[in-house]
Nucleic acid binder design. Structure first.
Lengths: 145, 145
DNA sequence: TATTGTTATACTCTATAACTATA
DNA sequence: TATAGTTATAGAGTATAACAATA
């Protein structure tokens, strides 16, 4: 987790970011692996928690080609986690949604991930957490919360 | 441990961490993709920058099975990035090292990754960077710098 | 014609199990 | 016997290109 994708003369703050990123990734990987899921499947379930998008929209969310998402959804469907339905408005469009089982798993996974990340923050003070949110906003250019 | 955690109510600081992690991962993925490498190959090149480990040690660094590393090194060798040599001390052991070309690429990649991460920090003030290093230490339990 | 989704194909990444060569 | 590494096999994930169905 700390191997180092980082050059010899890396600034400490760059290392800091990379290491935090690895720690978070490890939580995601571990949470997914507990249910024999890939991180991509984890993300997919997270997306479907509050959406029932078309295949194309799902591909967009995931940043993947549609053909990749076809396979992804094939495998999730085989496991009973998602279902495909044809849009009533446009017969070309396939709508993806969670099954009851998929929904339960998605809720559970979200909690697991949340707990895992929260645990990383155990030793971080309240004021540092506040600061971290602001710093993250600067980094991602997005407002969180 | 996951009792209520209605994950819709994820704390902003958890989201912040996840988003920072995605931003860093995107830099790694993009830097690797510029040279048609996977993130695993990128990590491998980073590791070999200052080491010439055995296959087993490399597998340990990467957290992968040895058989996975065999394939990884096969592909990198085919591209002229690494070389295998047999250890003089123990004929069972294969030593992996960068070729001149692999070394040049590793140096270049390290700089690219460093620049990409540094660019994420463009809008972060000096005092926030200092704080970020400290927060990262709390998160990873490791001292950076 | 354009769009949505799937399929065919090919490659990387990963693991498990079985194998070999060496110790 | 035990260890290092490879190979055989299998499956997931990913993309490109070609395709069918629908608009």
């Amino acid at each position: 987790m700390t191997e180092d994708a980082s050059p010899s003369a890396t600034a400490p703050v760059v290392d800091a970011l990379v290491q935090v990123s690895f720690a978070v990734s490890a939580v995601l990987t571990r949470s997914a692996a507990e249910h024999e899921l890939s991180v991509t499947q984890l993300r997919m379930l997270g997306i479907l928690r509050d959406r029932a998008p078309s295949m194309a929209a799902l591909a967009e969310y995931l940043g993947l080609d549609r053909s990749s998402v076809s396979g992804l959804i094939d495998r999730a469907e085989r496991r009973g986690l998602v279902a495909r339905t044809t849009s009533p408005e446009d017969a070309r469009v396939t709508i993806v949604s969670l099954t009851a089982q998929g929904s339960r798993l998605a809720v559970h996974l979200a909690a697991t991930v949340n707990d895992g990340i929260a645990r990383l923050l155990n030793e971080v003070s309240a004021s540092d957490r506040t600061r971290l949110v602001r710093i993250a906003e600067s980094i991602t250019g997005v407002t969180n919360g």
